[in-house]
């Protein structure tokens, strides 16, 4: 379950020796290897569960070309932390059910887990969670971003999401007038 930061061949040989383990090895887009428990991976990620069931797990590192090493490290970290925390009934049910179920508030450790991430790391993690079909991680990260957005001005939102303001000055003024109530607190 130890995070392998791509230290290379020594690890590689160790892994081959321990064939048929209860962990899976994941390979990030930049070639770094990470290990995660098979049980946690299958439980938390629908995509990994499918790969494990379908036997398409590569002992030398399953290629996840869409995910950078930083994001993958966070994913693995999350899986490990999740495995260590006592899985409450709420968490298990929310990791199975989809979307329309009301969102369960993040638990303390989940909150801490996402709080320490930078914007970029958070965005990468959202994409990784989406790619791997990790419903709960997606929920927690998206929730964190939405919390972050609350109370921000449109300017700040544009900055965070790197969005160009494509309104003309006149249009913007018009919208601002129509939305006058949203610009002041009462």
């Amino acid at each position: 379950m130890e995070v392998d930061k791509g230290k290379g061949e020594a690890e590689e040989t160790r892994k081959v020796a321990e064939a048929d383990r209860d962990t899976v090895t994941l390979k990030s887009s930049d070639g770094k290897l990470f290990e995660v428990s098979k049980e946690a991976a299958a439980r938390l990620s629908t995509v990994l569960a499918g790969m494990i069931a379908g036997g398409s797990i590569d002992d030398n590192g399953t290629d996840l070309k869409q995910i950078g090493s930083e994001a993958l490290e966070n994913v693995v970290d999350y899986c490990n932390k999740h495995a260590n925390s006592i899985p409450s009934a709420a968490l298990i049910s929310s990791s199975i059910s989809f979307n329309t179920a009301p969102f369960k508030e993040p638990e303390e450790w989940e909150r801490k887990f996402v709080d320490r991430l930078s914007h970029d790391a958070l965005f990468d993690l959202v994409e990784a969670a989406n790619f791997l079909g990790m419903e709960r991680l997606l929920d927690v990260t998206c929730h964190k971003i939405s919390e972050m957005m609350k109370g921000k001005s449109p300017d700040q939102i544009r900055e965070v999401f790197n969005i160009k303001n494509d309104y003309t000055k006149e249009e913007l003024e018009e919208i601002r007038q129509e939305l006058a109530w949203a610009f002041y607190d009462d």
């Binding site: 969102f103 998206c142 929730h143 939405s146 957005m149 609350k150 109370g151 921000k152 001005s153 449109p154 939102i157 544009r158 999401f161 969005i163 160009k164 303001n165 494509d166 309104y167 913007l172 919208i175 601002r176 939305l179 949203a182 610009f183």
Partner: peptide
Amino acid sequence: RLPAKPLCLFRCVSRS
């Protein structure tokens, strides 16, 4: 996931 009020404000972020 956002409440309605900030959402309305965010309509002036961009056309999309």
